[in-house]
Amino acid sequence: MAMTAVLSLKGGVGKSTVVLGLAGAAWARDLRVLVIDLDPQANATVALDPPPFAFTVGDVLSDGRQGIAAEAIVPSGWGPCVDVLPSEEAVAHRNRPEGVDSSTRLRVTLTGVTDAYDLVLLDCPPSLDELTRNGLAAADNALIVTEPGFFALQGATRALHAVEAARTSLNLRLRPTGILLNRVRGNLSEHRYRMEELRRVYGDLVLDCIIPERSAVQQAQGAGVPVQAWRSPGASEVIDAFDDLLDRILD
C-alpha cells in the first residue's frame, strides 16, 4: 500500500485535480483507493460525489483514537473501489496545534484502516499548518505539485523544505516522490522557460511526466466522474499522464 500526500504551499496549482487524476487512474485499474481530503475547501470531496455523510476528517482529528477514521470513511460516487474520508469548511478548526500529539493524530486514527487499500491519497491544503503536518506525518511519500510559473515554483521550493522538515521531525519514512508540473501549456514560452529552470535547480526531482492543461479535466470534475471516464482527445493525453504518474507512485 502506498500512502501519498499531495501538496504545494501555493493554492490553485491543481492539488485536488492531481489527487482526483491519480484516484481515477487507480480506479481504471480496479485498485482500491482511499482519498483523504484534508483541505477545508473540500473540492476533492465534492468531485468524488459521496452520498450524504455524517463525519469528516475534522471529526476524526478531534477524536484522535486509534483506528477511528474507519467510522468516517464513505464510498465515493465513482464506484465501489474508491472511498473518501470527506472534508468540510469546519475542518479548518483543526488547522492549528492542539496538544503534543496534534501533528500525528491522523496517523494514529488510520491505524489498521489503510491496510484494505492499494493506494491512499492525502489532499493537503495550501498551507504548512496542522492539517498539512498531519498529512506529512501519515504519508510514506510526498508529491509536490506546481505550475510552471514564478510564484508556483517558489511554492514548490518551500514545499520541498517542508517535506524535509517533516521527515526529520515527524516521520522518518517520508520521502519526496518528486515535483509534478501541472497545467502545462507547451506552446507558452514562459511555461517552457520555467520548466527548464525547475529542472536546472532540482534535476531528477522534477518528474518526467507532466500534466497538460486540458478542458476535459474540468469537464469531468463538473460531471462528478473520473477524467478516465471522459472521452475526448484532450482527456486521453491527461489519462496517459496520470497513468504514468501512478506507475511512479506505486513503484
Binding site: P40, F55, G58, D59, I68, A90, H93, R94
Partner: peptide, 16 residues
C-alpha cells in the same frame, strides 16, 4: 463498547 465517533465540538461553527 467504545463510544462511536462523534462530531467535533466546533464542527457546527464557521471557522472564520
Amino acid at each position: 463498547p467504545r463510544p462511536a465517533l462523534g462530531k467535533a465540538p466546533d464542527a457546527g461553527l464557521h471557522p472564520v
